[in-house]
């Protein structure tokens, strides 16, 4: 039946997902029908990555490294085992290495191959971490890239860039800021920004 509302076709049926979204649905349907993947397992994975992991996990590790000498010693001795005890290891069996910033050395993490990232500690990687601009340039001209993040390092402080792989992920332990003396782990956690654990920022007083 004709009607005078020309936009009507637009909302008569369900909003059509993008081609990519339809292709993902197709893969999911096929693999589920073949019994190769369990939708419940997918939901559980999504719940973890969308709701349970995030930079607060890494921040707590850093805060404890600052406040608890025994924890720092354990991290240095065997990071992977220490994080495993805390339930902070990934499912892919990767090793985690902590790199500690000092007045002499500032550490920065990248994945030049793709986007390997310590997901259980930092959550989903930010878009810039996955960009060609960051992945290619931070190796070549780290000081310039860091300056674009607003981080200008003193001349006397060297920059060391760590390239992650599927097997090894890095977590930067930023220097503990002045002004945080005497604070406990809970308070310190708020000083540890996500970028400070990648090396593109510093730990700072919470706003």
């Amino acid at each position: 039946m004709p009607h005078d509302h020309h936009d009507h076709d637009h909302d008569a049926h369900s909003l059509l997902p993008s081609d990519s979204a339809l292709r993902v649905k197709a893969l999911e349907t096929l693999l589920t029908r073949k019994g190769l993947v369990d939708p419940a397992a997918m939901d559980a994975i999504l719940d973890v990555y969308e709701n349970k992991v995030g930079p607060q996990n890494g921040a707590r590790v850093v805060a404890r490294a600052w406040a608890e000498p025994a924890f720092l010693a354990a991290l240095r001795a065997d990071t992977t085992a220490t994080l495993e005890r805390e339930g902070l290891l990934g499912r892919q069996g990767e090793h985690v290495v902590v790199v500690e910033n000092t007045a002499e050395v500032h550490n920065v993490v990248v994945c030049t191959l793709c986007s390997c990232y310590p997901w259980p500690l930092l959550g989903i990687p930010p878009t810039w971490y996955k960009s060609d601009a960051y992945r290619a340039r931070v190796v070549r001209e780290p000081r310039r890239v860091l300056a674009e993040f607003g981080l200008v390092l003193p001349d006397g402080q060297a920059v060391r860039v760590w390239d992650s792989t599927a097997e090894i992920r890095y977590l930067v332990i930023p220097m503990r800021p002045e002004g945080s003396a005497g604070l406990g782990v809970e308070d310190l956690t708020r000083w540890v920004t996500r970028n400070s654990m990648i090396g593109t920022g510093l730990a700072e007083r919470p706003a």
């Binding site: 969308e50 995030g54 921040a59 959550g123 990687p125 930010p126 970028n195």
Partner: peptide
């Protein structure tokens, strides 16, 4: 404020 920018 949340000091930890969470990516979604």
């Amino acid at each position: 404020t949340d000091p930890h920018e969470v990516t979604r």
